Amino acid sequence: MKNVLTRVGISFIGITVLAVAPAWAQELTNPQKNAVRSANQYLSMQGFSRQGLIDQLSSDFGDGYEVSDATVAVDSLEVDWNKEALDSAKLYLSMQGFSCKGLIDQLSSESGDNFTESQATYGAQQAGAC
């Protein structure tokens, strides 16, 4: 995702100081705030990848938020995606056996959890599959 910066002007006794703030630091819209609440609820129940959480929030079968609102909401959160991958890996291992490669593939697959390869590897290793 491309970083977008906005300029913010602040005046102190006739002197204007320009600061650069990331666009995501701007006030969230109401739909984005609601998407943040939904995202936090999902994260409290199970592990999600960044893309998996955006997909869940924006899916017609999920919450139905606009993709742009879901993306802003997820990117406004401070999430340890490695921890999310570990949580997801532990859940899979609690239900069935996986080889190290099989679990990494499941965690990183687009039709699976959609974690990055690095996050999936971390999760599988820390969960004890490797």
Rank of each mutant, 00 (worst) to 15 (best):
W81A: 01
S94Y: 02
E117Y: 15
V74R: 03
G62R: 14
D87M: 14
R50I: 05
L91R: 03
S94H: 00
P31G: 06
D80W: 06
R50P: 06
L107T: 06
L103A: 07
Q56A: 13
Q41F: 13
D75Q: 12
S99R: 02
D69I: 05
Y42K: 06
L28C: 06
L53Y: 00
S111I: 12
R37C: 11
I54K: 12
S49D: 08
W81V: 05
T29V: 02
R50F: 06
L103Y: 10
G112P: 09
N40Q: 15
D87F: 10
V36A: 06
I104L: 02
A39S: 02
G64V: 05
A85T: 08
L107W: 08
E84N: 09
N30G: 07
F61R: 15
G62E: 13
G97F: 01
S58A: 14
K83V: 10
A35D: 05
F61L: 15
G47R: 04
W81L: 10
Y65S: 00
T71G: 00
S108C: 03
G52Q: 13
S118L: 01
A39V: 05
E66N: 13
V79G: 03
L43D: 05
F61N: 14
Q46L: 11
D55Q: 09
K101A: 13
L43S: 10
L43Q: 08
N82V: 06
V72F: 11
V74Y: 08
I104R: 11
S68L: 14
I54H: 11
K101L: 10
A35N: 07
S59L: 04
T116S: 15
V74S: 03
D113I: 00
D55E: 12
L43T: 10
S118N: 06
G47M: 04
D80E: 11
A85M: 05
F98K: 03
P31R: 03
L57A: 01
S109N: 12
E27G: 10
S111Y: 13
D75A: 07
K101C: 02
I54M: 05
M95P: 00
Q56L: 09
K101I: 10
C100K: 11
G102Y: 01
E27V: 14
D63S: 08
Y65C: 00
S109P: 11
L86C: 04
N82Q: 15
L57I: 01
A39I: 01
E117C: 08
T29A: 09
S88M: 04
N82D: 15
Q106M: 08
S38H: 11
E66G: 04
N30T: 15
S88D: 07
T71R: 15
G112Y: 11
Q96M: 12
E117P: 12
K33F: 07
Q32E: 15
D55P: 00
M95V: 09
D113P: 02
V72M: 13
S99Q: 02
D69L: 03
D105V: 01
Q96D: 11
G47C: 05
L28G: 05
E110C: 00
L86Q: 12
N114E: 05
F48E: 01
L91P: 00
M95T: 09
W81I: 06
G97I: 00
L103N: 10
C100Q: 09
K101F: 08
S38M: 08
S109D: 12
S108A: 14
V79T: 08
F98D: 00
A73H: 12
Q51S: 13
Y65T: 01
Q51G: 05
G102W: 00
S68C: 04
K90P: 01
A39G: 05
L77Y: 02
C100I: 00
M45V: 08
